[in-house]
């Protein structure tokens, strides 16, 4: 029972971090109709910035805040200088250009920080476990990540559903041409949305850095999962991104334990141990293909 609870929390933690990436990606995709492969690079840059600030100041809070601000500015500069030119181009050109940006970002980080991965430690007070129930310990830092993820999700919900900016964003996602025709200052809106997405990436990078490792190429694996998330949830939909992210997180984490366990009843442990993790990964993509096949607009379509 504790195993399920613990794995559920693990899945939620992973899912919420995926959500931070997917939220920005889905807005850019939904509003600007732009496939941005360099989205994962912003996550990487956020993590490196956090590592840099943490190393020089020793303050975790400062590191997160600085990384958020820095990456947001960088994202907006990127939008103004390069990405803006790509909105009117086809998806293929966008893929190639943002793939080029991804290579440039990776190599720049390698030149600046070396090719060795940086390992960070979470703040000392959070490095141990918390006893959630008698005998049930859970890492304090992962709880913090869950808390931050939930707070951001709530904030985003309020922002999108209750504010004027949110209204413009929703208008852009559901009908871009109409929003344009209604005189929305699209240029500024796009730049702002992009900067906001970059900040969310940086938050994910800064939070996950101490848990994983800060390294060149860290954005690529998670980028593909973020794409899976937004396809499952529905392109352009924040609600969909949240649902998709939690689904992917929980399926992946539970699949990695439950599949080997259930396989073990019919197969030798070594075989079951090998097969389980891969089956869990396959499951995510089966889910994505099924959604695309039966509900191409995703589970929570943004366009009416």
């Amino acid at each position: 029972m504790i195993l399920f609870l613990e794995q559920g929390l693990n899945g939620l933690q992973f899912g919420l971090m995926l959500f931070l990436l997917a939220a920005g990606l889905t807005l850019v995709f939904g509003i600007m109709d732009m496939i941005n492969l360099a989205h994962g690079s912003l996550y990487m840059i956020g993590a490196y910035l956090a590592a840099l600030i943490l190393g020089s100041t020793g303050s975790f809070l400062l590191a997160v805040a600085g990384s958020l601000a820095g990456t947001a500015v960088l994202g907006m500069l990127l939008e103004i200088s390069v990405l803006r030119r790509l909105y009117s181009r086809d998806h293929l050109s966008q893929v190639l250009a943002t793939f080029a940006l991804l290579l440039i970002a990776n190599e720049s980080m390698r030149i600046l920080f070396g090719s060795q991965a940086l390992t960070l430690n979470p703040p000392a007070v959070l490095s141990g476990p918390v006893e959630l129930a008698p005998g049930f310990f859970y890492p304090a830092y992962r709880l913090l990540i869950i808390g931050v993820g939930l707070a951001v999700a709530l904030l985003l919900y309020l922002l999108v559903s209750r504010t004027r900016i949110g209204m413009l964003v929703r208008a852009g996602a559901s009908n871009r041409e109409m929003a344009l025709a209604m005189g929305v200052n699209v240029r500024a809106l796009f730049t702002a949305v992009f900067g906001f997405g970059a900040a969310l990436c940086a938050l994910a990078g800064a939070m996950l850095g101490p848990l994983l490792a800060v390294e060149v190429g860290m954005g690529e694996g998670i980028l593909i999962l973020a794409f899976v998330v937004i396809v499952i949830g529905g392109i352009g939909s924040i609600r969909g991104a949240l649902a998709g992210a939690v689904i992917v997180g929980v399926v992946d984490t539970l699949g990695r334990t439950l599949l080997p366990m259930s396989l073990r009843t019919v197969l030798p442990p070594t075989v079951a141990g090998n097969l389980g993790p891969s089956l869990a990964s396959i499951l995510i993509y089966v889910l994505m293909a099924a959604v695309l096949f039966w509900r191409p607009q995703g589970l929570f379509p943004a366009r009416g």
């Binding site: 396809v231 396959i282 089966v286 096949f293």
Partner: peptide, 19 residues
């Protein structure tokens, strides 16, 4: 959607061979 679904199937094939 075609881009994404071909990606999904390729990833499935990938994980089949990894396993």
């Amino acid at each position: 959607y075609f881009i994404m679904i071909t990606l999904a199937f390729a990833q499935m094939v990938y994980f089949v061979f990894v396993s």
